[in-house]
Design a protein around this nucleic acid. Structure first.
Length: 316
DNA sequence: AAGACGAAAGTGGTTGA
DNA sequence: TCAACAACTTTCGTCTT
């Protein structure tokens, strides 16, 4: 019962669309095992998807405790709370000398196997937390990023790249997937990694992991830009409306989403008499005035907004 | 004097041969 | 792998408020 309710928390991650090995989209999700398997080539694409909590079992003597407990596993902990320790300290008192030696041997052993990947993860996730809290990202995004990073490590994608850049790339991807995009500039500022580098690893990682990224929607930027410009809610919704119209006129395809969002905001501000300079808007949006001007001009041309703006001017 | 506008040249990334 | 290309930037001169 417990396991059932918990299984539902873990859905098939929808960004895994195809097998990274053979490209097949013929995937099978084995719920019970928590694996996603490519039916064509048999590759196990994802495991460790299901949280059974800390599933302690005593290997030393079978019936001691069968407690199944623990918080949902989380990727923001480097071993996902699933680390297996050989034996428990209390057991020591029940062991004879022979067994005690065995106990220590096993411990040492398991310590050695795990170190490489886990040590990397531990460091990386600390960095990830730092950056994400700097950007005030919600926990869900952080979780997603940690998950992406974990996958990347398991796939050996970090090799040859700095750990930090992969972390940033994972965060960037996670933001995009949660439709609360941050610009590369913001990530760059928060992490201290070069913007290009983040972009590169981001593309690389998403491609290698077969993560599908929806093209970011300019509207997702509006709220954030508007609030840092201290614009009213009406202006904000006007900007969104303008954006929708722009999208219908196919003004948005191929253009940088931030530029479009910035221009829409600029126009909306004009129409509500909350005039901001192009420079102000450009700064928060991370684009130049020129770009805003270009988008702005296109908006006026195609959407016939001139009248609406003139109305405002006349009122004054 | 500050902001808006536009032209021209440069940059980094994508695409298609 | 290279060249063409579109989007965006930088820079700068001119016009408007």
């Amino acid at each position: 019962m417990w396991a059932q309710t918990h299984l539902e928390v873990f859905k098939m991650p929808d960004y895994i669309k195809k097998c990274p090995e053979c490209g097949s989209i013929n995937l099978f999700w084995n719920k019970a095992k928590g694996e996603i398997i490519c039916k064509d080539c048999g590759l196990v694409i994802e495991d460790k998807m299901v949280d059974f909590g800390q599933d302690w079992r005593d290997f030393e003597d079978g019936d001691k405790s069968s407690s199944r407990a623990g918080a949902p596993s989380t990727y923001t902990q480097y071993d996902q709370g699933l680390g297996t320790e050989v034996g428990q300290k209390a057991d020591l008192f029940n062991l004879g000398d022979k067994d005690r030696n065995k106990f220590f041997r096993l411990r040492k052993w398991q310590y050695r196997i795990s170190t490489a990947i886990e040590r990397n993860l531990k460091l990386a996730l600390a960095e990830l937390k730092r950056v994400s809290s700097y950007l005030k990202l919600p926990a869900s995004v952080e979780e997603e990023a940690a998950r992406i990073y974990t996958l990347a490590v398991q796939r050996g994608l970090v090799r040859g790249r700095s750990m930090e850049s992969v972390v940033s790339g994972a965060l960037y991807a996670a933001c995009r997937r949660h439709e609360i995009p941050r610009t590369l500039d913001e990530l760059s500022e928060a992490s201290g990694i070069d913007k290009k580098e983040i972009g590169r690893t981001y593309r690389f990682v998403t491609r290698e992991l077969g993560i599908t990224i929806l093209p970011s929607n300019p509207a997702d930027y509006i709220a954030r830009f508007a609030s840092s410009l201290a614009l009213s809610a009406e202006t904000q919704s006007k900007a969104v409306e303008i954006l929708e119209r722009a999208q219908k006129s196919e003004l948005t395809s191929g253009r940088g989403p931030t530029g479009i969002a910035a221009a829409a905001l600029y126009v909306a501000a004009l129409m509500h008499g909350e005039k901001k300079t192009q420079r102000e808007v450009a700064d928060v949006a991370g684009v130049t005035e020129v770009t805003i001007r270009n988008r702005y001009k296109e908006l006026l041309d195609k959407l016939k907004l001139e009248k609406e703006i003139k109305k405002v001017k006349k009122k004054k």
